[in-house]
Design a protein around this nucleic acid. Sequence first.
DNA 1: TATGAATGAGCCTTCATTCAT
DNA 2: GATGAATGAAGGCTCATTCAT
Lengths: 204, 204, 204, 204
Amino acid sequence: LVYRKTPKVQKKLDEREMEIIRAAREVLAEQSYHGSSIKAIAKKAGIAIGTFYLYFRNKESLFQSIVDEMFSELLSAMKEERMKYDHVLDKLRASMEACVRLFIKEETLAKILLVQIPNANHSMNNLLVEIEDELIKRTKEDLDEAVELGLIPEQDTYLSATAFVGSFRQLVISWLRTGNPQDLEQAFYSLYAYNKRGLGIEKS
Amino acid sequence: LVYRKTPKVQKKLDEREMEIIRAAREVLAEQSYHGSSIKAIAKKAGIAIGTFYLYFRNKESLFQSIVDEMFSELLSAMKEERMKYDHVLDKLRASMEACVRLFIKEETLAKILLVQIPNANHSMNNLLVEIEDELIKRTKEDLDEAVELGLIPEQDTYLSATAFVGSFRQLVISWLRTGNPQDLEQAFYSLYAYNKRGLGIEKS
Amino acid sequence: LVYRKTPKVQKKLDEREMEIIRAAREVLAEQSYHGSSIKAIAKKAGIAIGTFYLYFRNKESLFQSIVDEMFSELLSAMKEERMKYDHVLDKLRASMEACVRLFIKEETLAKILLVQIPNANHSMNNLLVEIEDELIKRTKEDLDEAVELGLIPEQDTYLSATAFVGSFRQLVISWLRTGNPQDLEQAFYSLYAYNKRGLGIEKS
Amino acid sequence: LVYRKTPKVQKKLDEREMEIIRAAREVLAEQSYHGSSIKAIAKKAGIAIGTFYLYFRNKESLFQSIVDEMFSELLSAMKEERMKYDHVLDKLRASMEACVRLFIKEETLAKILLVQIPNANHSMNNLLVEIEDELIKRTKEDLDEAVELGLIPEQDTYLSATAFVGSFRQLVISWLRTGNPQDLEQAFYSLYAYNKRGLGIEKS
DNA sequence: TATGAATGAGCCTTCATTCAT
DNA sequence: GATGAATGAAGGCTCATTCAT
């Protein structure tokens, strides 16, 4: 009774928490937020309904965790890709490229983040808002640096960042919904060119 | 001799239908689709629950009407603004300008169309998808014409239209959510400039 | 203002009442009691919902009238057929024959009386109970007379009457439900023979 | 370690299911199918509304279970009684005797099966139709055997079986409704004699 | 700790009846 | 008298959350 939570026990608990999140993601990929019942998630995770509430305060809390986790994956992928480049504009492109590639690789994640989460309730939506804002903010930081370095002309960098992120968002959503463009990666490069012109980058 | 559907009575009925839609819009602006109960809408409209079902087949039918009405308002505003110009690129700008101005004027409408409707159920979401697709399609038509006229270089106009619409969408949503940019109309002009460069328009 | 209800006006009122009953019968032949809404009946009768309540106190009252009317038809048909015969056992056979023939001729009436009404609410069922009791009572009277005349042996005539009516009831219901026997009239004669033996009638 | 479905727990669950059925029977004995609300049944069973749906898929499912259970009781009683005899006509009499005795013993069951179920919705009614058909079919089998053995003369055994069952049905219903005959068991023997004559049985 | 039966507020919808026109 | 829009109680059912086991 001294060591209440041995590392071994703690590991088991963490694994179970991940298992629930995984199950919830799976359910959410096919059902709406309201259609994803705790019962279904618990079943898929191989636990009882009551057990769920030992790991998450409530339904909303679970989905917050899911979004947080997804956002971490996204940031992680972006960070890794950015590290490959030195110039800020290359880093900027690398960020978006990482996003798009992750969405291609994990279409389920993309669907949840861009389609299901906005379909959830108000507080869920707020989570996505924060993610988008964070992406815009980071993009703005790159743009500010680029302006400082004289790589792009003076401009309202917040606005540009919003346009930048928004155009990619629309592209991915269009792809998720309609299947067009079929080659999303190819389209990404065209769209990046579009935004380069928009930002006023003369040469790559 | 009989209860006639006099113009006076008919007017009252029409007004009541409008009143229900108005009440529903109001509720929807603050609640999610699932949070907008018929009971709450009826109460706000000053009618009994049963009365609601004299005007709308069911809940979904009401919200379809709302979206349809909003989209009509949007198209109407766009059409009116486009008529003021002859050149296709001016028309294109006028379209987006009309959208943004309408959203500024009717923030409630904007919130519902861009924030709440995607929060509704699947069929609701499809309505918005169709609206966005329609806007992209119309934008693409303008771009195709512009390419034909040599006003912009050859390009994947579907992709450009997606980027174009997506950037404005993100701007308005950002404004709705965070309040930034404070001067949305001013930001619109900057964003249009951004997209002009993206599209490859040399001179306005 | 002296003659408040001229015969002409009264006739019009009566006709409308009959029209409502006719419409209700039609609806009832296809729907259950609960499925037969006032709205549907009013529509079929060509009147407004409110008008219905000028002729009937409520829904139940209407269906009571329907059953009463049907029972009158039944008794009328029986009476007419009985008049053709002198001997009590012939009259008895004639009674049942008249019932069965009426049901064959007006299958709708049969369905309502034997299938829909028992499916209605409690008080509706009671109406049918009264009809059946009345038929049993009348049959018993015939049997009592037959006993008195020495045509059939001493017996519990109430019981015999119940069996008599019950067997015909089951036959008609079976016919309505399953379509068997196909030739209901032919079956009637066999069943009458069955009951003759049951009653102890030596010779017809 | 876990919430086990111990025999004790399982017993409690089974008891609760029985309790719901019992409560529903009780309500149904006094109300029509439509008058028997889930709320009322749950209240009488001492459970919450939601709990009901853990035991039955929906309202209809409950009543199907009730009818099935009742029919089982009926068949079981018949089978047991039939086993006491060797001759087919004795078995036939035993069958009906078992029915009547069960109805006397469990008047509530009788009321539901013969009065309320026909009052329920369409699919409920079909259940009763099937039961009646089954009884008629079984009776016909006995009669066919009796014909083969020369115990009764050649006849339309389906018709005779219909008359046979119908006469008992009417007797029991009459007893349930009016209270007459007071001594149902005594009446049963008279009615059986009636039917023996109808079938053409010379000697018992 | 793990379980899953139990809860009940709340949902959408129907329809017999009323009443202002 | 005739109308039909308005009413609201009541229906069946769902599901996030709790708690005895």
